[in-house]
């Protein structure tokens, strides 16, 4: 009988990992968490998450990198910052979530065709190339790369958006696109 694995062995953890994270902007107060659960209570999405925000913070703090990075939680976080303003220990939980998303993308640890990181990537490329996002083209690219069938569900909404003049088919582009590319190409300092 499979009872699932709710307890982990210490050897499965990577204890150095959270100490590296602590150096990153926004993650400094990671170790001051008192596990009060206010973040999970205030999070509008915690009921859909596989680990609540409180548990994610604890997983990260204890070095369970694999569990934290492959969780659905980090992708369900809508960045509403409710946890961050409610945290009595002033932990910037939203920034910790962002950091986890970045690391998960970097190491390709997110579920394939999961629409949220796909959308983030498509958006990223579009803005990098043109300087602006165009909602219509973004949704189209998202559908193609995740699940084209979602377009069927959007027909009605699309119809109304066209009717009310809110759907722009224009592909936006800024004049200073080369200037922007030069700016974005500036290398980071070495860690």
């Amino acid at each position: 009988m499979d009872f699932g694995r709710t307890m982990k062995y210490q050897r499965e953890a990577e204890p150095d990992w959270p100490h590296q994270l602590k150096q990153l902007p926004g993650c400094e107060r990671l170790f001051s968490c008192i596990q009060c659960g206010k973040c999970s209570g205030t999070c509008p999405l915690s009921i859909y998450m596989d680990y609540t925000p409180r548990r994610i913070i604890n997983l990260v703090r204890e070095g369970f990198r694999n569990e934290a990075l492959s969780s659905k939680t980090i992708w369900l976080c809508a960045s509403c910052y409710a946890c961050a303003v409610h945290c009595p220990q002033d932990i910037h939980i939203t920034d910790v979530m962002y950091m986890l998303k970045r690391e998960a993308i970097q190491h390709q640890m997110y579920p394939k065709r999961f629409p949220i990181p796909v959308l983030a990537r498509e958006f990223y490329d579009l803005v990098r190339k043109r300087g602006r996002s165009s909602e219509f083209w973004l949704v189209l690219r998202l559908a193609m790369k995740s699940n084209p069938l979602i377009l069927l569900g959007m027909v009605r909404t699309g119809f109304w958006l066209i009717r009310t003049g809110r759907l722009s088919l224009r592909s936006e582009r800024i004049r200073g696109v080369h200037q922007l590319r030069r700016e974005l190409a500036t290398p980071k300092e070495a860690q």
Binding site: Y98, R102, A120, R128, R132
Partner: peptide, 24 residues
């Protein structure tokens, strides 16, 4: 000639680029 702010997606992929977008 404003550019996109990067919204939440840029922060989730590349924080430095997110700051560069806003900086412009």
């Amino acid at each position: 000639d404003w550019n996109c702010c990067g919204a939440t997606s840029y922060m989730a992929i590349d924080e430095e680029s997110a700051f560069q977008l806003s900086a412009r």
